[in-house]
Design a protein around this nucleic acid. Structure first.
Lengths: 202, 202
DNA sequence: TTTCATTGATTGGCTGTCCAATATAAAAAG
DNA sequence: CTTTTTATATTGGACAGCCAATCAATGAAA
């Protein structure tokens, strides 16, 4: 897509890798996982088909790198916000807002992530990436909540909240733009507040 | 899969269609959407490859019929339970239990459904099927809740609950069996109770 | 010169689709 | 109760087309 006017012929690797990963996400968004061929991907990236195997071992390698990139981007949003959080409630809010940030919930990103999720069962590498992301989200939430309530309850609420966030991702992918990140965050905060209020009654 | 000992040579259509749809679900579960080829599907069904085009116009037709079948099965679970529900709360419980019934949350079923969802953006037919299912779930929930609170709040809770249920489906697909339908229903009921309690405070 | 970057044609394999050939059960005719 | 006819059911191979992967050749910077 982006045409570099100058031609830096050395150190192209990180540039091309990122370019191809972006193109892979776009191709999955447009054609679906099954029809995201190397031809379409390299065309979207504005390079020849042969170049893919110069920077990635195989198509599977490119796909795995793409999923890793998506996971890293999501994770970065939460980590950034967690640094400025003081109270346990702040930290829960940081996880919610990080995982449902506007950049994270882009139509292309969520569609691609969903496609990778649908392959988790038959691809151990995909499963590992997905597992790590979910586990870290759960850990962050549970660590914050355990300061407010017994461990058992904290775990239960952390699990429920992470599932709700998953549902919001899914809805964002399915409604493709007509469901704003703002609305998603509002729903998550709302339901968490209700659940927390009930937990602190007894 | 199932071998019919007698050979009824007439009226095979409904039998074969169901057989191929089941095999499609199994193939997606085992190989993923992209590698669920007609060869694998027909092999799983125990028939030749040519027979697919005798009962379905094309592979796309078979896939669409498969997604429709999954949607119909889910819907049937909710409709059945709704008939015996008297109070608004009963009806909400019916929707929750119907959409998260043990049969509905089978590993094969949720994996296949998730795969279809990942194609929703680039396939209008898939999008239509998915839309109808979500809309009906929302309508059922909202109709029940509007008897307990103002329409605006009822809509909000209906939307949140349907998103939570989506998240539970997703989690069931990703954890592939290690997440029981019982646990899913418990989480849904729990969070709904908390949200309802908060809504009725003012 | 040497090394990295890039191209585009080629290859072998697998895909969905189509189709002629065959088998079987039901219906019709003798 | 046969025999013939008809319609349905099923097979497996042929076909063109597309795929990922490979590679020899070329271009450009160091």
């Amino acid at each position: 897509m982006a045409e570099e006017t100058l031609l830096p012929k050395l150190g192209m690797e990180p540039i091309r890798r990122r370019q191809l990963i972006e193109a892979t996400i776009a191709a999955i968004h447009e054609n679906g996982f099954a029809d995201a061929t190397l031809q379409r991907i390299s065309a979207l990236a504005g390079v020849s088909t042969g170049i893919v195997h110069h920077y990635f071992q195989s198509k599977a390698d490119l796909l795995e790198a793409t999923m890793r990139q998506l996971a890293t981007d999501v994770r970065a949003g939460a980590v950034k916000r967690l640094r400025h959080a003081k109270t346990p409630r702040d930290r829960v809010a940081a996880v919610i807002d990080g995982n449902l940030a506007t950049g994270v919930l882009s139509p292309q990103g969520v569609t691609a992530w969903l496609a990778f999720c649908s392959q988790v069962h038959c691809n151990p590498n995909f499963r590992r990436v997905q597992r790590i992301l979910i586990d870290r989200m759960h850990t962050n939430l549970a660590h914050a909540l355990v300061e407010l309530m017994p461990r058992k309850e904290a775990d239960a609420i952390a699990e429920g909240l992470s599932i709700l966030i998953d549902g919001l991702w899914l809805r964002a992918a399915l409604s493709d733009g007509h469901f704003t990140p703002d609305a998603a965050r509002h729903i998550a905060h709302d339901w968490f507040a209700a659940r927390l209020a009930q937990a602190q009654l007894h």
